[in-house]
């Protein structure tokens, strides 16, 4: 079976085509392309502009994806799209596209949960059997473990997602958003070495990031007003690189901690990191150290799959479709709020 997947819950528009040749064989990625709406430095992306971007690129991407995959309309079995969660207008643009294709091509629709898409693609690519999943992106921060047909949320960010925190800090520092604000924060952090004292907010299995964001924004402001600011302990000059370094070290430590707690709770030693923030090398390194200490390992994918993409929607959608799941046209809505544990994961034991 072959499916086409459309993703556009945030500023990344992705189209992917996947094939499941045989139940016992691995999936084949036939094409996976993406175009990102990048806003100017210091600005975030607004729903209206993002939706406009998606609408103007989606047809192009679908055609290109099909050409790269070498498939025709007849080959496709179903059209998968992101039902949610995400930003309203962008989600709608993609949903409308999916509906249009469904009616035009006379193919069934499958609405997919964005987070489940990340998880299923992560599992497929890495081969991780039953890991604890850390899903971290601009819009989500969750620690998930599979149990009885649900991806259960063990821990999460109580206020804003970690990616959101990093992206907003990038805005504060007016760092470029190309290719992604978080990526540029990561590069700057590599040049930092002073670890400043920032609020560390882990509460049991959950964590929160608004406090640390407020603190780091304040520090950035102070640094701008007073560039000669020195670290009280080492006496060295503080740089924006140090700010990025301190922020990363602290928020990533928080994420590793709540992941470890979940692992201890369910008795697992494998971790799978998915979501845009999962691309970060330092996070992968830290998670790897923790997992190794527990006699386990960390699984992560590269930016083709970490960052929002269409193939993950195609994958999760096709898995559901193969169990007989479809989304009738009348129900092919999209929603900003769609919790990971609402999905009945019929395709797993």
């Amino acid at each position: 079976m072959i499916s086409i997947g459309l993703e556009g819950s945030a500023n990344k528009l992705g189209v992917g085509i996947i094939s499941h040749p045989h139940p016992n064989k691995p999936a084949q990625i036939l094409s996976n392309i993406r175009h990102t709406f990048i806003s100017p430095p210091g600005e975030g992306f607004l729903p209206k502009d993002t939706a406009m971007h998606h609408r103007s690129w989606v047809v192009r991407l679908v055609k290109q994806a099909m050409a790269e995959a070498g498939v025709s309309i007849a080959d496709i079995d179903c059209i998968c799209y992101t039902k949610g969660p995400g930003m309203g207008a962008p989600l709608q643009s993609v949903a409308i596209t999916a509906r249009m294709l469904s009616v035009l091509w006379q193919k069934e629709l499958v609405g997919v949960n964005h987070c489940v898409g990340h998880i299923e693609m992560g599992r497929e690519i890495t081969g991780a059997q039953n890991p604890v999943v850390l899903y971290v992106s601009g819009g989500n921060t969750q620690v998930i473990a599979y149990a009885e047909h649900r991806y259960r949320i063990f821990g999460e960010a109580l206020d804003i997602a970690v990616g959101n925190c990093l992206d907003r800090f990038a805005r504060t520092l007016e760092i470029s958003n190309d290719p992604a604000p978080g990526y540029n924060v990561e590069q700057l952090a590599k040049k930092g070495k002073i670890l400043l004292d920032l609020p560390y907010a882990v509460k049991g299995m959950d964590c929160s990031f608004s406090g640390i964001l407020a603190s780091i924004d304040l520090l950035a402001g102070e640094l701008k007003a007073n560039p000669d600011k020195r670290d009280p302990i080492t006496g060295e000059l503080i740089t924006t690189a140090d700010l990025c370094f301190s922020l990363q070290e602290t928020v990533y430590a928080m994420l590793v901690e709540i992941t470890e707690r979940a692992m201890a709770h369910v008795g697992s030693s494998q971790v799978l990191i998915v979501g845009g923030v999962g691309c970060n090398e330092r996070l992968q390194e830290m998670m790897g150290l923790m997992a190794r200490d527990r006699g386990g390992s960390v699984y992560a994918t590269d930016e083709r799959f970490c960052i929002d993409n269409g193939i993950m929607i195609a994958q999760a959608g096709l898995l559901a479709y193969e169990t007989g799941f479809t989304t009738p046209l009348e129900e092919s809505t999209c929603t900003q709020r769609f919790r990971t544990d609402e999905v009945f994961v019929k395709w797993r034991d």
């Binding site: 070290e249 602290t250 430590a253 830290m286 150290l289 200490d293």
Partner: peptide, 13 residues
């Protein structure tokens, strides 16, 4: 101490 944490942060925590 946790090896994944920066030593300064680790001690502080």
């Amino acid at each position: 101490s946790k090896p994944y944490r920066h030593p300064t942060l680790d001690l502080r925590l």
